[in-house]
């Protein structure tokens, strides 16, 4: 596992090298973009240059407006993730542990999974109002399924031979759950967390596009109406960067908690 605490990776690369390797493509793109915009090859109205976008970002940040929208968006995504993801994890564990629960609930859950968020968004507004509830619940709906499916799969993939060991060692039901099932299913559960975090963050756009007056999604749709393209780009960049950071956080957890794994590392 690349969780080694020293600075060298198995392949002999330093962390900074790895970081630089990942930055080459976006940096080259930015330079290319700025040059093309400066030369007038592409319309700066449709594609404001990176410098213009940076200025717009600076202006929004200076007034504190950006921070306010950002804070609200993150709170919505986090709450939606905790609610939907937590419930998904619980349901996935229950369905994974008990065949009867699976038979009773899984078909319904799979049907609900296939209903697009955009299709139910108007209904959520009618049911829960245009306040925070409908937005958070819409995000929660998206975050539920990846954790549900992966927790379920993780539990069903636990080696039966280890269950036999647990029986021979006289594990109680509770110990079987916390010392065998959960750790063995953890790789799948963390994958579910990763997917759920992503979906929660993406779900913000749908949630904040419907009758919203705050959040990064609102900031973008508002800017679009007034053709403030640089602000739209600021929103896009925030989505990309924060999404990547959240994803990295989960991967950090994976590295820490799954260092016992013995898999091909590329």
């Amino acid at each position: 596992m690349s969780a080694s605490t020293d600075m060298t990776k198995p392949g002999g690369y330093k962390r900074t090298t790895v970081f630089l390797l990942g930055s080459i493509l976006p940096l080259a793109l930015l330079v290319f973009w700025q040059v093309l915009g400066g030369l007038g090859v592409i319309s700066t109205l449709l594609f404001p240059t990176p410098v213009t976008i940076a200025k717009a970002f600076g202006k929004l940040a200076a007034t504190g407006e950006l921070w306010e929208h950002f804070r609200i968006s993150v709170a919505r995504a986090a709450l939606g993730f905790i609610l939907g993801g937590g419930f998904g994890l619980l349901c996935g564990i229950l369905a994974g542990l008990f065949r009867r629960t699976e038979r009773a609930f899984d078909p319904t859950i799979q049907m609900l999974r296939m209903v697009p968020s955009l299709a139910v968004a108007p209904l959520f507004v009618i049911w829960f109002g245009i306040g925070e509830e409908s937005k958070v619940l819409l995000i929660a709906k998206g975050a539920f399924f990846p954790l549900y499916i992966n927790a379920f799969l993780g539990i069903r993939n636990v080696d039966n031979k280890l269950f036999e060991v647990a029986r021979v060692l006289g594990f109680s039901r509770l110990k079987q759950l916390i010392r065998l099932v959960i750790p063995a299913a953890l790789p799948n559960i963390l994958l579910g967390v990763r997917l759920s975090v992503g979906i929660s963050w993406l779900g913000l756009v749908v949630a904040e596009l419907m009758a919203s007056t705050s959040g990064i999604g609102y900031l973008m749709s508002d800017a679009r109406q007034f053709s403030k393209t640089p602000v739209v780009f600021v929103g896009i960049i925030i989505f990309a960067v924060v999404g990547k950071l959240a994803d990295s956080l989960v991967r950090l957890m994976e590295r820490r908690w799954l260092k016992w794994r013995d898999n091909y590392q590329g």
């Binding site: 280890l162 060991v165 010392r179 065998l180 750790p183 016992w260 794994r261 013995d262």
Partner: peptide, 11 residues
Amino acid sequence: IFQEPRLFPWL
């Protein structure tokens, strides 16, 4: 004791 050690790989 089984034919394979059957240890918990995460411990």
